[in-house]
Write a protein that binds this DNA or RNA. Sequence first.
DNA 1: GCCACGGTTCGATTTTAGTTGAACCATTGG
DNA 2: CCAATGGTTCAACTAAAATCGAACCGTGGC
Lengths: 106, 106
Amino acid sequence: MATPANLSHPSRADLTLTAVLFALSDPERLAIVRQLRSGPLDMADCSLSIPDMPKSTKSHLMKVLREAGVVRNEANGRGRRLTLRSEDLDARFPGLLGAILDAPAS
Amino acid sequence: MATPANLSHPSRADLTLTAVLFALSDPERLAIVRQLRSGPLDMADCSLSIPDMPKSTKSHLMKVLREAGVVRNEANGRGRRLTLRSEDLDARFPGLLGAILDAPAS
DNA sequence: GCCACGGTTCGATTTTAGTTGAACCATTGG
DNA sequence: CCAATGGTTCAACTAAAATCGAACCGTGGC
C-alpha cells in the first residue's frame, strides 16, 4: 500500500481551475509536471533545480500538486510513483494542460 | 495620459507562464478577466463578487493582472479602460487563454 | 478655479504559503 | 530480524501576498 497512510486525491469532479492554476504557477512544481508528461516517474527519479533540496520540502511540493488534482501519488515498493492526471484534467479543462505544457519553458 | 503616473506593462516577450498562471489562480482576478473577454471595460464597470470592496484592494487586483501582462490598463477620461491582452497571450502561450476562459466557471 | 470622481500608491497589518529539521513509517535487502 | 532507503507528517519559523485606510493625483463638470 502506501508508505505512511494512504494519500487522498480529489475526484475528477472536484478539480477546480484556480487550484490547478495555482499549483502550476510555481516554477519548481511546473518543472516536475513537465517531467511527468512522458509518463509516470518514481519520485526519487524526478530531478529538481535544487538538487540538495530537503525531502520534506520536496514532499510538500508534491502535496500541493496532489491536492490540486494534478498528480497522482501512489506507493510503489518502498518509493512513490507519480502520475500526471492528464485524463482527468483534459476531461474537466479541455486543452488546458496541453497549452501549459506546450508553452515555452521560460 | 494616465491618472496618476503612467502604468508600466510588460512587453509581449517578457510574459512568463508562471506569472500568468499565478495571476489567474485567484477567483476574483479570474472573474475580472472573464468579464473582459467580450471586450474592453471601464474599470468602474467591472463588477466584483464583493461589491463594496475597497478601491485600494480592487486596484491591487488590477495591478497583479497588469504586471503579469494579462490586462492593459490605460487612462480613459477620468477613469481607466481595461483590455485583455489576448493577442499577446495567444502569441506567446497559444491556446492557454482560451482553455482557461472556456473552463467551467466553478 | 474649484470640487467631486475614479484610481493609484504607500505603509501597516493580517493572512497565507514556503522551508526545514525531527520524528515516524513501510518496504526491501542482507 | 535489523538497518538502510524513500517518503510523509508535524511544528516552528520565515517569506510573500492580500487587505485596507489615508494621502494623493488627473480629469471633467460647473
